[in-house]
Design a protein around this nucleic acid. Structure first.
Length: 353
DNA sequence: CACGCGTGGCA
DNA sequence: TTGCCAAGCGT
């Protein structure tokens, strides 16, 4: 045991975590850990990937469905691509789902179905970067890895009053996080900082009055906690426009199209459409198309206005693009949100078949 | 290293 | 309504 001031800080936080740890389906609470229970690396990995840039509230239901359907990494590795992409639909950042499958298959193929038990090994796997490798190593294997996510950056920036804006401050914040990381209970410590950041040291209106680190916090002492961390200004989002064609066949089948593996919504189910450059495009089949309105959707880097065209076609219609999927094979829940919006608009505009 | 990559909640 | 934000990764 160290006896430095930094060690005191981590001890204060761990004591707080022992009393206030949030209950999560992928987490082993501190009292059960103390009794010797270990978290399942598969569930830790799955939760960490889902939580990348995503709120706990959004992840919970997805985590439950994934673990119900694929209880082990071997089950997931054996799944069909389309089933995994469909189950991920709505959660966003779909490269995560593609990498999730690639990672599960690599674990089965190259590691005998067992996750590497250290940060360096985890880092080699697809979809596992510096943060996720550290988080799994600390939480699942109690490796004293330095875990730096958005919560840690925010908490460190306030605790030490770091005025340099992100992303430039990242190196300094990582150094400060490393100094605090304890050798004992590094996994609980990592989760404690994240709980602190999510429930007390929040981006807006931090609850400093009940914070276990309120006394040592330099930003709090100077009253500048709400201004930290500083961030570089972001560019304004341009508006892009396009057309999407939704066709229903007489038997109720829908003309769908699997998107390219790479890029926006890569690997997800969708409908034939134009480029999103406002130039229009050619319909995927000759029919009497009707414009039924626009769908508006905002992606990370742009706003999209999608003009929705619909039609009903005969059973012998031939599509130039896409594939007719029978009602049993077409689940609207498999669609990413922007495509789901287009489908809902089209479906409500068409008379029952 | 800067950028592309989703979505839903909230002020 | 609009902008900001959340447990980042790959290129």
């Amino acid at each position: 045991m160290r006896d430095s001031g930094e060690s005191d800080l981590s001890t204060i936080l761990l004591n707080w975590y022992d009393r206030h740890a949030r209950i999560m389906p992928w987490r082993v609470p501190p009292d059960r850990k103390q009794a010797g229970e270990r978290p399942d690396p598969y569930r830790v990995w799955l939760s960490e990937v889902m939580l990348q840039q995503t709120t706990v509230a959004a992840v919970r239901a997805y985590f439950q469905r994934f673990t119900d359907r694929w209880p082990t990494v071997a089950d997931l590795a054996a799944a069909a691509d389309g089933d995994v992409m469909g189950e991920w639909a709505g959660l966003g950042y779909y490269a995560r789902a593609r990498n999730l499958l690639a990672c599960a298959r690599a674990v089965v193929r190259d590691h005998g179905g067992v996750f590497p038990a250290n940060r360096a090994g985890l880092l080699e796997l697809p979809g596992i970067g510096p943060y996720t490798a550290s988080a799994i190593a600390a939480i699942a294997y109690d490796e004293p890895a330095v875990v730096v996510d958005g919560n840690v950056e925010r908490v460190m920036a306030r605790l030490w009053r770091v005025e340099e804006p992100l992303p430039g401050a990242k190196t300094e914040l990582t150094r400060l996080a490393a100094v605090l990381t304890p050798v004992a209970r590094p996994g609980d410590y990592a989760q404690a900082v994240m709980d602190l950041g999510a429930t007390i040291c929040t981006p807006r209106n931090p609850a400093c009055g009940i914070c276990p680190w309120r006394d040592p916090c330099r930003a709090r002492a100077d009253g500048v906690q709400a201004t930290l961390p500083r961030k570089a200004e972001k560019a304004a989002k341009p508006v892009r426009q396009g057309v999407i064609w939704v066709a229903r066949r007489a038997d109720g089948a829908w003309l769908a199209e699997r998107r390219a593996e790479r890029g926006l919504l890569g690997g997800m189910l969708g409908f034939p459409g134009s480029d999103w450059d406002g130039a229009g495009g050619a319909a995927p089949l000759a029919a009497n198309w009707a414009e039924v309105g626009d769908v508006r959707h905002t992606f990370t880097h742009f706003h999209l206005i999608l003009q929705v065209q619909v039609t009903s076609v005969a059973q012998d219609a031939v599509a130039l693009r896409g594939e007719f999927l029978a009602p049993a094979a077409f689940r609207p829940a498999d669609l990413p949100t922007v495509m789901r919006k287009a489908f809902d608009l089209a479906n409500s505009a068409l008379a029952p078949p």
